Each structure stands twice: as C-alpha cells, then as structure tokens.
Simulated assay, not measured.
Amino acid sequence: MLKLLGRIVWGLAGALALIVAGFFLSAWVGSSIPRNGDWKEAETGIPIMVETNGVHTGIVMPVVTSVKDWRETFPSASEHMREGMKPTHISVGWGDREVFLTVPTWGDLKASTAVRIATQGGPAVMRIGHYYRPTGGPNHRWVVLREEEYARLVARIEAGLPLVEDPHDRGSHDSFDPTARVYDSIGHYTLGNTCNQWVGDTLATAGIEMGLWTPLAGGVMKWIPESGAEP
C-alpha cells in the first residue's frame, strides 16, 4: 500500500511538473510569434512607457494629451500625490481583483488564492498608478506612438471598463500601494488571460509589434527596446 501511495504521489508530482514546463514552453513559443511585424516606432508623437517589476507589466501614459484626458476616466488622476504634486502620468495594469487588493508581496499570496487562480481564475480590476515625470530605464521603456495608434490604445483600455455616466461613480478601491487606485473592470483573469496578456493585447491593438501570447512579463518586454530617457 505504501509503495502504491508513493507511486501515486510521484506520478502526480511528475504530471504537475510537466504541466508547469509545458506552460512556460508554450509561453516562450507563443510570445515569439509576432503580431504587427511591419510596425515601426514613430519619430515624433505621443510617448508612452511599458514597465515591469519582473512579474507584472503595465502601460504608462501622460495624464493629458491632445487625444485623451485620463482625468475624465479615472478621477484619481486629478488628485494630489503624497508629495503634494499632481501626477503627470498614470500607469494602467489589469489583473486579478484579490491579488491587486490583498497581495503586496508574493509572501502574502495565500495557497488557496494561488490554487483558485490556477484552476478557475477570478474577476478582474484595473490598477492605476500615479507618477510625476517618470524616467526611463531597463524596466521602464519608452515607446513613441502616432496619434491614431494612441487613440486605439485608449479605446482598448476604456473598453475594459464598465460604462458609467459620471466617472466618480466608477467602482474603485483603496490599494495596499498608496500611490495607486484600483478600479472595477470587465473581464476574467485566468492563466491563459493574464495581466501580461492584457498588456500585450492592448499594445498590439494600438499597432505595436508584439508576441501573440504573452502570459509572462518577459514575453511583453522582449518586444520593447530599452531606452534610458523619455523621447
């Protein structure tokens, strides 16, 4: 009986290892298949930033441009930051509601939450970070978009929000990050439709060259050239 139990445990462990390895292999292959392969970055236009913390990616945009005033969509974009300054840029990310609201570090991730995400996913939210004149770097890379490309980016982001007449009526939540605000979103987070897949799809909708399936942060960032300063 003990030998049989041991074989079952080892069999389950082996199957799990194969599933995990298959996921990472599929992510690498999928993120290497290009969309918008003929895209070229604009020489002049609207600079945005693609950022990462190594696990999660986000899209950083000016609060106000000729195309879009984000204060009309996210009221927090017009509020003063802790330093007393108003943000010049917002960072938009998308992901699992429970994670964005209750998991400041991986050490805070409950086993039950991890299992739930892996097996069934959960409702999504948008995390809006607020920056004052952000600078570029290896994990914060500038990209210049044409106005029509930026307009498509804006439309794709707004399509992920519930319709409201007054943006102040939009459902929002305090974040464990005092520089961010979390807003209700449309959609369902799964391992096949992750925060990074959302960023990849949003950038691809704008016309930027991007991988087909980008569930991991590296699959997004490898398509964005490094740049040290805002264009």
Rank of each mutant, 00 (worst) to 15 (best):
M85G: 01
T88L: 04
W94M: 00
A111P: 06
P104Y: 08
E79V: 00
D96K: 07
R97Q: 10
A77K: 07
P75E: 15
G84R: 02
H80N: 08
E83C: 12
V64N: 05
S76M: 11
E72G: 15
P62V: 03
F74W: 07
V64L: 13
G84Q: 03
S112D: 13
P62A: 04
A114D: 08
F74Y: 13
F100P: 07
T105R: 14
R71D: 06
V115M: 14
V92F: 04
V67Q: 15
D108E: 09
V115C: 02
I90W: 01
V64A: 13
S76A: 15
V115F: 14
T105V: 04
R82Q: 11
E83Q: 09
K68E: 15
T65H: 11
G84C: 08
T65S: 13
A111W: 10
L109K: 07
K110C: 00
S78V: 02
V63I: 13
E79P: 03
D69H: 02
W106H: 06
M81I: 07
G93H: 02
V99Y: 12
L109D: 08
R97I: 00
S78Y: 01
F74C: 07
T113V: 08
E98P: 03
V67T: 15
V63C: 07
E98S: 04
R97D: 01
T88S: 12
P62D: 04
T88Y: 00
K86Q: 14
K86T: 13
E83A: 13
M85L: 13
R82M: 09
A77W: 04
V67I: 11
V63Y: 10
S66Q: 13
T113G: 00
V92S: 01
T113R: 02
S66F: 00
V99E: 03
E83N: 15
P62Q: 02
P104Q: 09
V92A: 09
T65G: 09
W106C: 01
G95D: 05
P75R: 15
L109P: 10
P75A: 15
I90Q: 03
F74G: 08
D96N: 12
L109E: 12
T102Q: 04
F74S: 06
S76C: 15
V67P: 14
T88G: 03
K86W: 06
I90L: 08
F100H: 12
V115D: 11
M81V: 02
S91T: 06
G93R: 00
G107P: 10
M81A: 02
G95T: 00
T102R: 02
P62C: 04
S91A: 10
W70R: 12
L109M: 14
L101P: 04
R71V: 07
R82E: 10
G93W: 03
T73A: 09
W106N: 12
T73M: 11
V103H: 00
T102F: 07
V67F: 05
P75Y: 14
R71H: 06
G95A: 05
E98N: 03
A77F: 02
V92N: 01
E72P: 01
E79A: 11
G84T: 08
A111I: 09
K86H: 12
E98I: 04
D96T: 07
F100V: 06
W94N: 08
M85P: 01
H80W: 00
R97L: 00
I90R: 08
R82W: 08
D69W: 05
M81L: 12
E79L: 10
T105Q: 13
